[in-house]
Nucleic acid binder design. Structure first.
Lengths: 150, 150
DNA sequence: ATGTTATTGAAAATGATTATCAATATCAAT
DNA sequence: ATTGATATTGATAATCATTTTCAATAACAT
C-alpha cells in the first residue's frame, strides 16, 4: 500500500498527514504482522527517535475508526493490531497461543465459513435485533514452539 | 448448580471452600449473566459487605484454571466472565454491542458450527502445529436498544 | 506567507488487574 | 473438639495498557 493512498484517506476524513503517521503506516504496511502498540513504538524508535507512544495510540485509533485496522484483544488487557488491507484479506481469523501470546492468521475454509457466517448473521438480526457490523473468530491453543519448550 | 458441588470441586483441586467463594459461586450460578469483576464485587457487597475485590479476582482465576469459567475480553482492557455449567451450554458464542458493551449469548447452528470447527481445528493442527484447546466466536454490532437510542 | 486549528510528545491520570503481607480461617490429623 | 500447618482474606501498593491534559509545534486552506 503506497504512502500517498494513506495520505488521501487521512485528508479525506479531515485528518492531517504527518511524519509520525507516515512512519506508522509504513511500518504497518511493511510488516502485516500483529503488533502491540508498544511493539510498534519500539520498532519506530530506531528510525524515528522522538516519536511518542501517545501518537501511536492516537493513529491506531483513527485507523480503527476509519475501518482500516483490526484490534485483537488478548485477554490480558493488551491488544494487538493489524491493518485490513483489502476485502480478500479481510476474511481471516486468529490462532492465539495462550502460552506466549503469539497470533497467527488462518485463511482456510473461507467459503464454508462465509456461508455459515451469513446464515448466522441473518438469524442474529431477526432474533436479537442486532445489527451485525463485524465478527471475530479466535482459536486458542499451544503453538509448536511452546509445545516443544517443556 | 448446588453449592456442595462446587465445594467438592474446590476441595478436589486442593483449594479450600470459604464463605467468600460460596457467595461468589452462588451469585454466578444464580445469574448466568456476563459480569465484570467489579459488577460481581458490587453485587456481593450488598449481602456480603467486607468482601474484597481482590478475592473476586482470585476466585475467578481459580475457576478459569479449573475450566469452569469463560473470560470474555471486551477490547477495552475489561473482561466479562461467565460460568461454563455443562457441555451443552459450552457451545454458545457471543454477540457484543460495540456501543454499550452488552454481551448476549447465541446458541443457534450448533450442529453446522461443530462440523466447521472440527474441520478447521484438524487443519490448524496439521498446518501450524497448533494444539487447539478452545475457541471463541464473537459477533460485533449495535444492539436493539442502542439503535433506538439515536 | 499567514492564520487557524489539528497534531505532537511529555507527563500525569485512569482503570483493570496483580502482588505484597500480616491477620485470619480452613480442615486434616490427632 | 483442639491443634497446627498452611491456604485464604482484604487492605494497600504496585503494574501495565491505554487516555487525558496541555503548551509548543506543524499542517494546510486561504
Amino acid at each position: 500500500m503506497p504512502s500517498h493512498k494513506w495520505r488521501k484517506r487521512f485528508r479525506g476524513s479531515g485528518s492531517r498527514w504527518t511524519a509520525p503517521r507516515e512512519a506508522i503506516l509504513n511500518l504497518l504496511s511493511r510488516t502485516s504482522k500483529h503488533l502491540s502498540a508498544k511493539e510498534i513504538y519500539r520498532s519506530l524508535f530506531r528510525i524515528y527517535p522522538g516519536i511518542g507512544l501517545t501518537t501511536v495510540y492516537r493513529t491506531l485509533d483513527i485507523l480503527e475508526k476509519m475501518g482500516y485496522l483490526n484490534k485483537i484483544p488478548l485477554g490480558t488487557g493488551e491488544n494487538k493490531y493489524e491493518l485490513i488491507t483489502n476485502s480478500e484479506e479481510k476474511h481471516h481469523h486468529h490462532l492465539i497461543c495462550t502460552q506466549c501470546g503469539k497470533v497467527i492468521d488462518y485463511t482456510d475454509f473461507v467459503g464454508e465459513e462465509l456461508e455459515l457466517i451469513n446464515k448466522t448473521e441473518q438469524r442474529l438480526k431477526k432474533k436479537h435485533g442486532f445489527k451485525i457490523t463485524d465478527h471475530n473468530f479466535e482459536f486458542y491453543g499451544i503453538c509448536k514452539e511452546c509445545q516443544e519448550r517443556r
